[in-house]
Design a protein around this nucleic acid. Structure first.
Lengths: 146, 146
DNA sequence: TACTATCTCTATCATATTAGTAGAGTATAC
DNA sequence: GTATACTCTACTAATATGATAGAGATAGTA
């Protein structure tokens, strides 16, 4: 698995929308500015995320984007798999792979499976609600420092 | 981290050489045939592996390749990091990264670090001696079936 | 010495992916 | 009816991937 810029941008965008969950829509412009993402690139990512059911949109004035579900319902794994593809480290672990032709690869397969399980175990156990809590804890720590 | 064909080929080749550790050199031709790797592509991979200190070569007749170290001294992680690059899932974890400019990414960083540790924990704890033992166990299981 | 099997090295290439950019079109609030 | 915002399709530059091509160097042996 490799996290691309697109995946990274998507995660940051979802987190931003999660922070503003329940508020009025957030514009692409604001999302792009706050996370330092090229606006036109973010447009495409948001359309993808909309098709994936992660966000909703409102057109026209006072339009923008909204999170389609509660932050607790969206896991980090959902977003990166949707944007960056499977988390498997090799193609032979993915669905509808025809199988190993040679016995050498089969010795390595359990390794990739182990890695795959480890990754899934991490990304499928963190929701955006968890991340918001961490953000708040971080903010409080900074205030405490001052 | 993503395992490329090159990395996969390198691992299979090292394993083949590990199986023949202590024997006479193995030719590129035999390695390519046994693991079904394009010969000319394998040539390049073997040159890389030689530069990386994993294999040694003998030229001329009765030439070929030999494992440069004992199979117990080579870990899966050594080979894939050398061939496919760092196992980190994102660039911000790699060495000499300038640091996070925005606070959003920082919330995700611990996730990538966790994944990175999990992967390292797996690939740095399997040597090619371990793999040979697994191969032998598999062979015996097959014989037992017959 | 000549031959041949083997490794060595550099260049080239086709395809896919990544990270964008461009521009015209559509909907909505005021 | 106009400004603001999302929508959609196409295009592009750079890089990585997975090879292929061909000339060269070395070592054993007849």
């Amino acid at each position: 698995m490799r996290i691309t810029y697109k995946g990274d941008y998507a995660l940051k965008t979802i987190l931003d929308l999660a922070v503003h969950y329940g508020d009025s829509p957030v514009t692409i412009h604001d999302l792009a500015r706050r996370a330092d993402i090229p606006t036109k690139f973010l447009e495409q990512i948001l359309l993808d995320l909309k098709r994936g059911g992660f966000v909703e949109s409102r057109r026209g004035k006072v339009g923008g984007y909204l999170l389609a579900k509660h932050p607790a319902e969206i896991k980090v794994g959902n977003v990166i798999r949707f944007i960056d593809g499977p988390t498997e480290p090799v193609a032979c672990l993915e669905k509808d792979y025809s199988g190993c032709q040679d016995m050498f690869r089969c010795v390595f397969k359990p390794i990739w499976q182990k890695i795959n399980r480890a990754i899934s175990n991490i990304v499928d156990n963190i929701t955006f609600e968890d991340l918001i809590k961490q953000l708040q804890a971080k903010k409080e720590a900074i205030i405490y420092q001052i």
